[in-house]
């Protein structure tokens, strides 16, 4: 009982702190080599959030109000589901389903729907283009994600994330399946449309699905994106970096460190890579990455048979 309460608390804390941590880390990554650190790094995200709360939410011509207001909240809810799936220790986990890997897969699939809805419901041209573009991306990365995750589940012989971690006792999946984590990181960038895969909210669309959003709903949207990034990092740390496993420190601390590591890696990629042209992106996904994820799966399967 206490453990389930503690794990629930953990989800809420990450939900509340996640956006701030992501914003600060992103600023740190952006200014890292030249070290132009201002107090802005620490206070900036907070004052920006305060500004967005002060700003009024605008209207467009005949939007689908329900969907428009709900989409950011739903995306946040999906991110929260993702967070609830991350095991902090063998027992400290909010939702220990036997099919938690599949549930994460459905979070990814539903995220596509929600992001599409966010762009579609504004009833404006640029968000709509962003939304359609995102669907092409979303349908491409979901298959990759599925194969890579099945690969991670194979050595555990279970679709339960706690079992997936337990199976990495001798060797982490990042070593056992070297293709897994790099491919999964691409999925993460796609899921949060971050950096090179920001096809939904991109600069060529003046903000894409978020181009017509202001005020509190924009704040929720940005927070949801950040929390999704954290949730994804947590899942990646669990599935490939051995979750709570590690010497000296207690399990939850290891999960936290590994999550922050994956997060920093994603933010760094986001700062250093240009946005991939949508056509090139889809080609890359289907012609290069999808076959690579097949290879990853076959590799994992052969290893599992061998053992």
């Amino acid at each position: 009982m206490i453990e389930s309460l503690a794990s629930l608390l953990m989800v809420l804390v990450v939900l509340a702190l996640g956006p701030y941590v992501v914003a600060v880390m992103d600023r740190l990554v952006a200014t890292a080599p030249r070290g132009a650190l201002a107090s802005d790094v620490w206070l900036g995200p907070l004052s920006r959030a305060a500004w967005l709360l002060t700003q009024h939410a605008n209207a467009t011509e005949a939007p689908d109000w329900q969907a428009w207001r709900l989409a950011p909240a739903l995306y946040l809810a999906l991110a929260a589901v993702g967070l609830a799936l991350v095991p902090w220790s063998p027992t400290l986990i909010a939702t220990d389903l036997v099919t938690s890997v599949v549930l994460w897969g459905s979070v990814e699939a539903l995220a596509t729907v929600v992001i599409f809805l966010h762009g579609w419901s504004a009833n404006a041209v640029l968000p709509l283009i962003g939304a359609y573009r995102y669907v092409a991306l979303g349908l491409s990365y979901i298959l990759i994600s599925m194969f890579v995750l099945i690969g991670a589940a194979l050595p555990a012989e279970s679709l339960q994330l706690t079992q997936v971690v337990a199976s990495q006792e001798s060797l982490w999946n990042v070593v056992r399946q070297p293709l897994g984590l790099p491919l999964f990181l691409v999925v993460g960038l796609g899921l949060t449309f971050w950096g090179p895969l920001n096809l939904a909210d991109s600069t060529d669309l003046a903000g894409g699905t978020a181009a017509e959003v202001s005020g509190p709903s924009r704040l929720v949207w940005e927070c949801a994106r950040a929390v999704m990034l954290v949730a994804f990092s947590g899942i990646a740390a669990t599935a490939f970096l051995g979750g709570w496993l590690g010497p000296w420190l207690p399990g939850p601390v290891w999960v936290l460190l590994k999550t922050l590591f994956v997060l920093a890696l994603l933010l760094w990629l986001g700062q250093w890579l240009p946005r991939v042209a949508p056509e090139r992106c889809v080609t890359l996904m289907w012609i290069v990455l999808l076959p690579l994820s097949f290879v990853d799966l076959v590799w994992a399967g052969v290893l599992a048979l061998w053992a």
Binding site: D40, G44, L46, A50, L53, T54
Partner: peptide, 13 residues
């Protein structure tokens, strides 16, 4: 205090 904080934000122009 919310407005005080908002006033310190980077100015979106």
């Amino acid at each position: 205090w919310l407005r005080q904080l908002a006033a310190r934000s980077c100015v979106p122009v």
